[in-house]
């Protein structure tokens, strides 16, 4: 967490928290309160904005799949970077897909789309904070050349249903 990424809401919570801590008459109890409040103060996001990833600075990583987590609400991919131009080898990155197993399975993905050890080239929108995380854009499985994206097929090319009959 960096001050730059701290939302006003959290700033407010933290300021409340610290004012409470320092005005508390019993330091031990105050600290315990803070511990609990800190744990509770950071909300868990279900569906969230992807604005903390920088869509203007996409980058490509050469990597090995460590784990592919097929779960709601956002599928996750953990990778370890390989040797490559403009990247450090051996870094663990978390790549978040902006969608879930339901929509992904409708465009051909399965929980077996990626296996640990697969060598991939993955394009991401990196986190603005510089942490080792990114939003998934697309990837190529090097062994097969298969390209995986989260883009839905063009509805003009592939109708979602049979053409509707006129009433």
């Amino acid at each position: 967490m960096t001050p730059r990424t701290m939302t006003p809401m959290l700033s407010f919570l933290f300021s409340r928290l610290f004012s409470r801590l320092f005005s508390h008459r019993r330091p031990a109890a105050g600290l315990a309160t803070v511990g609990l409040a800190l744990a509770a103060a950071v909300p868990a996001w279900a569906h969230h904005s992807f604005a903390m990833y920088d869509g203007d600075k996409p980058r490509v990583l050469q990597a090995t799949v460590k784990e592919f987590q097929w779960a709601n609400p956002h599928v996750l991919l953990w990778i370890t970077t390989d040797e490559g131009a403009g990247q450090k080898a051996g870094e663990l990155w978390t790549i978040e897909l902006s969608t879930s197993p339901g929509p992904l399975s409708r465009i051909g993905w399965t929980k077996r789309s990626l296996e640990p050890g697969d060598k991939i080239s993955v394009e991401i929108n990196p986190l603005r904070s510089g942490e080792l995380g990114g939003q998934f854009r697309k990837l190529t499985v090097l062994k097969t050349g298969q390209v995986l994206t989260t883009a839905l097929p063009n509805p003009d090319e592939k109708p979602l249903t049979a053409p509707a009959a006129k009433p």
Binding site: M1, T7, L92, W93, E131, G133
Partner: peptide, 17 residues
Amino acid sequence: PIEHEVGGAPLPRTVSK
């Protein structure tokens, strides 16, 4: 639990190595 950045982005820090 996976550690998350403010904003909800998952971070690799707590992931089992």
